[in-house]
Structures are given as C-alpha cells and as structure tokens.
Design a protein around this nucleic acid. Sequence first.
DNA 1: TATGAATGAGGATTCATTCAT
DNA 2: TATGAATGAATCCTCATTCAT
Lengths: 200, 200, 200, 200
Amino acid sequence: MPLSDAQVQKMKQKRETILEQAIQMFAEHGYNDTTIAKVAKASGVSFGSVFTYFENKDQLFYAAVVEPLRVYAKELLDFDSNAEDTVAELRKMVTAHIKIFSSFETYLRLVVQVIGYHNRFAEPFAELDAFHNTFRGKIGELVKKGQEQGQLQVRDANYAATAYTSLLIGLRVNLTDSPDSQMWEKFVPFAMQLFGPKGE
Amino acid sequence: MPLSDAQVQKMKQKRETILEQAIQMFAEHGYNDTTIAKVAKASGVSFGSVFTYFENKDQLFYAAVVEPLRVYAKELLDFDSNAEDTVAELRKMVTAHIKIFSSFETYLRLVVQVIGYHNRFAEPFAELDAFHNTFRGKIGELVKKGQEQGQLQVRDANYAATAYTSLLIGLRVNLTDSPDSQMWEKFVPFAMQLFGPKGE
Amino acid sequence: MPLSDAQVQKMKQKRETILEQAIQMFAEHGYNDTTIAKVAKASGVSFGSVFTYFENKDQLFYAAVVEPLRVYAKELLDFDSNAEDTVAELRKMVTAHIKIFSSFETYLRLVVQVIGYHNRFAEPFAELDAFHNTFRGKIGELVKKGQEQGQLQVRDANYAATAYTSLLIGLRVNLTDSPDSQMWEKFVPFAMQLFGPKGE
Amino acid sequence: MPLSDAQVQKMKQKRETILEQAIQMFAEHGYNDTTIAKVAKASGVSFGSVFTYFENKDQLFYAAVVEPLRVYAKELLDFDSNAEDTVAELRKMVTAHIKIFSSFETYLRLVVQVIGYHNRFAEPFAELDAFHNTFRGKIGELVKKGQEQGQLQVRDANYAATAYTSLLIGLRVNLTDSPDSQMWEKFVPFAMQLFGPKGE
DNA sequence: TATGAATGAGGATTCATTCAT
DNA sequence: TATGAATGAATCCTCATTCAT
C-alpha cells in the first residue's frame, strides 16, 4: 500500500522538524548531552519515531552536520572566480561571507565541534573537509586571477585563501555570543587585507 | 605526622602525570568519551587515586584547561606594547605566536571545545575569556601606538586585535593535523597585514 | 497509539510486584543494603525497569512507605468515635488494632526506620506523622466522649491516645519476631487500662 | 617500651571522644550515612586513627550500642524488686524510667535502629535483647510481689512487664522531637495503669 | 508507521580498609 | 601510635537501542 502524497509530505515535515531540533541541541549542548529523548520531546514526537527517520544517533548527528552544509555551501560559493574586477568581486564576496557567518551561530558551533573531535566524528568531518577544500580552492582561483591582473600583491594564493577561511572561522569562535551583524561588518576591511589589494 | 619531602614530590609528580594524560585525552576524545578509568589507566594509577588529586571529573577538566593557560599566557603576552619600533615588535610577536600556536595542537583542541560548549563549561570558559580579553587588550595597545607613530594605517585597534586572535585560532582549527611549523610560518605575513603596516 | 488494556494491566501488576519486593527488602535490610539490582532481581525484571516505574531509589522508598499507609490507615481508623457504648467500642477497636499490628511485621519495621531517621527520610516521615496525628486525634475523641459519659476516668484524652499508640508501636518493636497473634491478644487488657475504664 | 600513664590516659580519652561522636552520628544519620571519615573529623583525629581504636566500622558500631548500655542498664535496674510497698516502688521506678527515657533521645534512636535491622546488626541486637529480658524479668518480679501482696490486680506479670517496656520504647519513638521532660512526666500515671494498682 | 516499555552496558563516585612512612 | 595516600568493590543512574503492540 503506497503512502498517499499527504502522508509523504507529513513525514518529510516530521523529519525536518526532528533534524532542526537536533541541530539546535547538538550545537547548544554537544553530542553527549543531547539525548534522543530530548530531541524527540522538542520535536513533539515519541523517541521511537526518531529511529524511524534516522537509523541511530550517529546518523542523526551526521545529517545534522551534513544536510545544512548543502544549503550553506551554495551560498558560500556564490561568487564569480572569473570576475573581471577582482577586488570588487572579493569585496562583495567577503561582505556576503561575513554576513552569512554572523548568522550561522548555531550551525557553526556544530562545525567547530566536529573539527575539534574529528577522530570521533570522522564521517561528518570528511564532508566538512571536502567542502573546505572546494571553498578554499575557488577563493584561491579568484585571488590568483587578481594577482595576474596586477590588482593584488603577489603572494601564495592558497595560503591567502586558508588565512581567509581561518579568519572567518576564528571570528565565529571568538564572537560566540555576538549575533550583532553590525559588529561583524567591521571585519570586512581586515579580511580584505589578507588578499593584499593594491592601493588600499 | 607530616609527609616527607620525597612523598610530597612523588605526589606532585603523580598529579602532574594524571593532568597531562587528562589533557591529552580530553583534547583527543572530548569530555564525555574521556572516562576517569581511562585517564587513571593511562597514568598508571588506580581510578580511585584520580579522586585523591581532583575532586571530580569536572574539576579535572577545569584544571586541564586552566593550568596550562597560566604557562601559555606568559609566553603569549611576552611582547612589549611600548616598543619603539612597532612594526618590528609586531613582526617578532606574530612570529612567536605562530610558532606557539603551531605547537599547541592538543591544548587548543581543548580550548576550542570549551568555547564551543561554553554553556556546559562555564567556569573554564570564563578563565579563557578573561585571558582572551587581556591578550587582545595588550595587542590593541601596541597597534594603537603604531598608529599614533604613523607606522600603521589608522583603523580600529581593538578590531584589529580581535581579527588577529581570530586568525590565530582559526588557523589552529583549520590546520588540525598540521604540526608542520614550516607551513605555519608562511602565515606570518598574512597576519601582519591585519595590522595595516605602511609600505609593505 | 495508546497502550492496550492488557498492557496497562500488566504494567500495573509489574509495578505492584516491584513495590512489594521493595517493601520486603527495605524492611528486612534497610534502605542502604537494599539495592535496586536486588529488588529488580527479586521482582523478575531488569533493573532498568525499576526506573521505568519509580523515578529513583528515594521515590521507590517513598512509595514503599506511603502506599501501604493508605490501606492500613483505613483499617486503623475503622471505629466509631461517636459510639454510644464507649468502652465496648474501645475494646473492639483495641482488639482490631492489636490484630492489625500483629500482622504488620514487615511494614512496621519500615515505619520504625523512617521514624528513626526522620532527618534522612523527611518526606515519608511527614506522611507518617500526619497519619499519626489523625489517628491519635480520632482515638482522643472517643476517649473524651467516654469520659463525658462517665464510663472512663477523667484524664487528658490526648495523652491517653498518645500512650496507646506508643504502646502499639512499642509492642511491635519489642515483639519483633513474634507473629504469633495469640500472644498479641494478651495485650488487649493492658491497652484498655490506658483509657481508665471504670469498674474493671 | 611501655606507655606512660599520661599516654594511656590520652589514648583512653581519644577513644572516648571517637565513640561519643560515633554514637551521635550513628544515631542521627544511621549506619551507612555515617562514614569513618566524618567521625574522625568530628573527633579531631585522622581517620586512620579510628582504626587504631576500633577494628573496623562494625566494631565501632557495636561499641556505640553496647558500651552506653552498661551505664544505662545500671540506672534502669536501680529499683528494689523486693520492696515492701510495691506500688510506691513502682511509682518511683516509673518516674525514674520516664526521666531516663526522656533524656536518652540520641542513644535510643540507635537502639531502635538495631532492633529494626536486627538481622543486619545481630551482635549488638543480642546484647540489647539480653538486657531487655533482664529488665523485664526484674520488673516482672516486682509486679508478681505486688500481686501476691494484693496491691495489684492479678494479671500475667510478664505481659505487664512487656507492655510497660513497650510503652517506654513506643513513647521514645513517637515523641522523637520532644526533649521536654515536663511532657514526659504526664505519662507516669498511664504507665502505672499497666500494672493494675488497686484503688487508683 | 508510531509508541514507549524493557534492557543492560557503561560511568561517576563513595568509602571501608590497607599499609608505607 | 598517627597519618593519609592508594585501592577497587559496590552502587545509582543514564540512555541508546530493540521490539512487541
């Protein structure tokens, strides 16, 4: 007996709710202090149901880390590594990234944990690491282009990209309780400096 | 009957061993996956003995975070915020910091965890936060001086300091498995850029 | 999906079994020497299940003390404080009480422990104390009535009631291993004396 | 090297202090919640020293129960079972007993526990039981004499004695927090009734 | 599919007791 | 004799996971 469309919809919705609550709680209280029972309660389902949608706690954690990544990845990679005016594109990119990071508080807490315990969380870490490489790579390309055009001082573009992503994650770690995006914006010029724009 | 000096020494040594093992394991496997039994075994003592030296697991964790801080704090603050040649002092400072951070792998993993779950680890977090403020403050002073002397471009010195400490921590997070200090050194010029040195 | 009636019945039965075993063991071996594991084993359930029915050991103890009280209270208060023939009613009451106390061995051991450590067992003690006051009060009323009617010598009715309940509990303490109800019956006339019946 | 008298005195004193503290704490908090460490601390000695004076915790408990008994036994048996005026002697005895029991709060809490868990505390219980039999026996003799003299109504003297000791212990249990000896005195006439004095 | 009772492995902690100093 | 560090058995409790309904 196939499920009706309405039923499929309802189930999707339920899965979504559980995942959102899980992200919230994993980020806030960590893996161990987040119990399946608490997630279930916060989601308004029985804890048995959590196992209907996620094989086990590790899978739930994996999904909590990896699924948002797909969304955020797109936003973070939304810049043109072939742009003509490299510096302008970089500035647009940095501004967008800063804005995204300032609003990511919950999710990035999760990311930091995964990185911190990458032995324990090998699988989600692999995904994050893969994205990080893609991310750095694309930024590196843009930087390289800017250097070739003479708009940026010549330095190792990959290191510049790594310094840049490190600054982003470091700010997120340090400004733990500062959702105030105005303050975040102040860091745009500092981030730009890492790329060595000429005449600034 | 007071303990003999030899006794006292032996106890100090034992406490030290336990703490070192605890730091290692907390950093590697996190708070929850580090059991007292494992720490005891790694330290070559019975688990009951751990409780002789540390009131409970939370206190052990606290000590693991806070005691090394006292040592590292001194190293990290070892620069002159009144130096005449600001840029030279900054470069020396940055080089030293990069070196220190490159060797901190274990301890900084711990730090990242504490920051990530600062709700859970409120007390050690408070200590880290206090140090961070001192650290940023002293760097900010040096930057301010450089700006007054005209050696640095004028920007908000506190934000510069925050960007700098963020870069350091972000590098540590991103370069999780890179104890290679040669690679770390490459980041010195990028860090310097955050302070806006003129004519570089 | 609500539980079926049969399920609910089974659970009630299981809870009952656990509680009975707990009463038995708490009475026999005391709070500390009664482990959850032993109670579980005696009840034929896993020890995890005990926590399904009782929040923790203290709650189990509380239930073990308070739930039987509801039953016994009714039996003990089953006399008429407005009876016409006071002495006859008192004799009936005393006979009933003696019989009840003679059969209470297990439960009263528990009661004695709670009273003995009323600091430690504050909550169950409060319940017992409340019942004791009700019990004494009702007896006192009957005694007062008898005195007004001239059937009993005039003494403080409340002290008489306290002396009576003390005798009951004292007998239970002293005759620890005497379930022999024939012997208990012999104490009826002594108990009656406390009320000062005229012409006996 | 024999110990000096002063040293022997000091040790006796220390043992005494430990025992007093132990009685206090066993009575107040029970066997299990009274730790050797706490007793040692309250006594101003190291917990190792407790083991110098008492073989182990059980022996300490045994001493706490049995040693005071030797003192109290003498007081409780201080009446003349051959007295000419039986009723007067009984009244004197009851008055003395009530007074003693009213002041025994701590010790009798201990006694009640031993009786309550006589399986667990078999050895101290045996001592208490032996004393109880002696105590009842001597009272029984006096009662028997009074009956022979026609001063008391004829009833089973042993049951009367048991009823009497039960009333004493029951009062002690019930009046847990009433050190007020004035109130206790009110129970003298009730206790007397148990012996069936003629013409009262 | 949804529920929640049942299970038991795992872990922090307490504390009597031993024993070296 | 006095001390207190060392030990590890014992116990409460949590929680992921299974499975009958």
